[in-house]
Design a protein around this nucleic acid. Sequence first.
DNA 1: TATATTAATCGTAAAATTACGATAAGAAAT
DNA 2: ATTTCTTATCGTAATTTTACGATTAATATA
Lengths: 112, 112
Amino acid sequence: MAVTKENLFKDKQKQTARLLKALGHPARVAIVELLAERQSCVCGDITKELPLAQSTISQHLKALKNAGIIKGEVDGPRVCYCLNKETVGELDERICELLDLLQNTTPENKSC
Amino acid sequence: MAVTKENLFKDKQKQTARLLKALGHPARVAIVELLAERQSCVCGDITKELPLAQSTISQHLKALKNAGIIKGEVDGPRVCYCLNKETVGELDERICELLDLLQNTTPENKSC
DNA sequence: TATATTAATCGTAAAATTACGATAAGAAAT
DNA sequence: ATTTCTTATCGTAATTTTACGATTAATATA
């Protein structure tokens, strides 16, 4: 982020941005899609599905975990990831609120 | 992005990520909220509303413009920005598709 | 016990992001 | 014609992001 002024914004704006940023990379979109599609929580299969190195995937997983969007559970030698329903729900709320605002075009509120 | 492998992902994933990334900063969330709230398209009033330097705001506006989320129209000495309804609609579609996928938890698809 | 498997972390490099002040470029007003 | 206002761009610095290979740590398996 570099020389961030993040704290000067509203908590909601910060949290919205945080969640959107976490999904702001095609690899991370692909990961959450994978986690949603697979019945199991999948783990390092992600590495085989995506065209990225194992360490890179691990980094992306960390980013998603830091944002709270996924959680990982150790299962023997491997780690099982799954979506965090709570945070996904929060994302839903935040994004719906935002889209409501962006799309509630009152009669006077015309386009440029 | 650095050494990007973006092109190895699906177009939809790329576009979703692109739009989410554009809104992945509190200042840019604040900007689109401002544009939605104000009846007018506002221009450099944004600079007065947000705790950032004029050049920084200009940069954020550029990011939003590059993603297609806003458009700017020159109006005399100032520039009038407004939301781009088409792209906001596309964002709506993409995010709803994604959230549908993330939240459609079938009976077998339990949490970890 | 030795060896494989799995995933996180470390070190590194290249590029992008965030932020600012200073400057430039445009139009408007004096 | 000059000055003022507004916004974009340039240059710069600090930090973060993306990506990789190599290594480590932990668990299984032979």
